[in-house]
Design a protein around this nucleic acid. Structure first.
Length: 437
DNA sequence: ACGTAGTAG
DNA sequence: CGTTCTACTACGT
């Protein structure tokens, strides 16, 4: 039956929705909770090594400070601008995150923790009920943690993210945006003004290629032929097109009990140009990976190691990498170190390597039972890894280490603070040597 | 199965 | 001179 002006208003439709909750400038907001003087000032939080800005307050953004802006370019002007920079305090952020996520569990039994400061919630109701729910989430999180969040609610994850972005940008919304509650005219114009790079899942490379197809805005992408998009790009981008139409294609996920891989990688304060230096790095990184595997009670079946020159090094570009099948599932530092050092033959003398990393993959939980395994290594059987961890916890992390990674007087790069992540570095730079094999 | 590309936060 | 770190999915071979 065609609608007529005499019809009573449609009864409010209850529907299944997804709420996206995101803490505003998360790291900065955490700092502000414990240091209110930072309110109203432009504040940034720096990455490891105090390398670049990874979180910016609204005031800092207003100063034109970009995400990833290198601190060395900002430091000179900081005083003049009244800019406050803080080094990362990941322990603090992790704990604040846990508080927020626990709170969100009160509003939905279906919470997917997407990142340290974001979650998706399965919710349902009329758009007005959802508006009230969003406002309640926002005020309760603030009341109980001191952290400001925005809430976006829509029928797909991509649109929930879009709604959240809208809530952040249009301050009249008060930090909550229920997409379907806004007049179509409004949402259409929002999509038409939003550059396609702002869409969740569309990065700079895809943006360039999409422009070649005449797709510049979120609206252009939504209206694109999804099959054509799939053929030109991949199934992922086709899903994005459908999600922009409000059709959920990205399911809510269970918490991943077992991560697929674990990475330890760092940039060096000074480049490494020889195999001895790289050998030491591989030893340290492999032992870090081992420690994390132990902590999570996991074992790995595959190890990759890689090194690379700086992205900014115009003269050299070398990215050696290896992948090694481990003799069996293991977290043993001796086995992992030996595997990681297989990268060394590929290291070219004189090339300035700027970073390196160790990746362990194909992770599985440690078997609880003590099974007979003819392939288990001698060190593993003797539990060298757990022993090292225990000694470190009792005598400090500088007390013990394997091979070159245990040298207390390492080469210059090792002593630079830039080598270290804010939490772990203060520990593992002070290792001693022990012969384990 | 493995290496590469791209993306997110 | 110098620009983070971790983790995922998809694709090509």
């Amino acid at each position: 039956m065609p609608p007529s002006p005499l019809d009573s208003p449609a009864p409010p439709q209850r529907g299944e929705y997804i709420a996206h909750v995101d803490v505003n400038s998360f790291y900065v907001s955490c700092e502000r909770v414990f240091d209110p003087k930072l309110e109203v000032r432009p504040v940034i939080v720096l990455s490891n090594n105090d390398g670049c800005a990874v979180a910016r307050s609204a005031e800092a953004k207003a100063l034109g400070i970009e995400m990833g802006a290198p601190w060395f370019k900002l430091a000179a002007d900081a005083d003049r601008l009244g800019l406050v920079a803080k080094s990362s305090n990941y322990e603090l952020y992790g704990e604040m995150s846990a508080r927020v996520m626990k709170l969100l569990g009160r509003f939905s039994a279906w919470v997917e923790v997407y990142s340290i400061d974001e979650a998706f919630l399965g919710v349902s109701g009329t758009v007005d009920e959802l508006q009230a729910l969003g406002e309640q989430i926002k005020s309760e999180v603030f009341r109980l943690t001191g952290l400001p969040v925005c809430v976006g609610i829509a029928t797909s994850k991509t649109m929930a993210k879009m709604a959240n972005k809208t809530a952040k940008h249009i301050k009249e919304l008060g930090g909550v945006c229920v997409w379907d509650r806004a007049p179509a005219q409004t949402t259409e114009s929002l999509l038409a003004r939003l550059p396609v790079v702002e869409v969740w899942g569309i990065g700079p490379r895809l943006t360039k290629r999409l422009r070649g197809l005449g797709i510049w805005t979120a609206k252009d992408l939504r209206n694109a032929n999804e099959v054509r998009i799939r053929d030109k790009f991949s199934i992922v981008q086709m899903r994005t097109v459908l999600e922009l139409r409000g059709i959920p294609c990205i399911p809510m996920e269970e918490e991943r009990a077992i991560k697929d891989q674990l990475i330890f990688s760092r940039s060096f304060s000074d480049p490494i140009t020889d195999r001895v230096g790289m050998e030491q790095v591989m030893g340290i990184y492999a032992q870090q990976a081992s420690a994390r595997l132990h902590k999570h009670q996991k074992q790995a079946k595959i190890l990759s190691a890689w090194a690379m020159t700086s992205y900014y090094n115009q003269h050299q570009d070398h990215q050696p990498a290896i992948t090694v099948k481990l003799p069996g599932p293991t977290a043993d530092p001796v086995v992992l170190t030996r595997a990681a050092k297989q990268l060394l033959p590929q290291i070219l003398i004189g090339v300035k390597y700027a970073r390196a990393g160790v990746v362990v993959m194909d992770l599985q939980p440690c078997a609880m039972q003590e099974t007979f395994d003819p392939f288990i290594s001698a060190h593993e059987a003797k539990q060298i890894g757990p022993l090292i961890q225990q000694i470190r916890s009792e005598h400090g992390v500088k007390s013990i280490g394997l091979g070159r990674a245990g040298l207390q007087q390492g080469p210059a790069w090792e002593m630079r603070r830039e080598m270290m992540s804010p939490r772990y570095t203060t520990h593992w730079r002070e290792l001693l040597t022990v012969k384990a094999a």
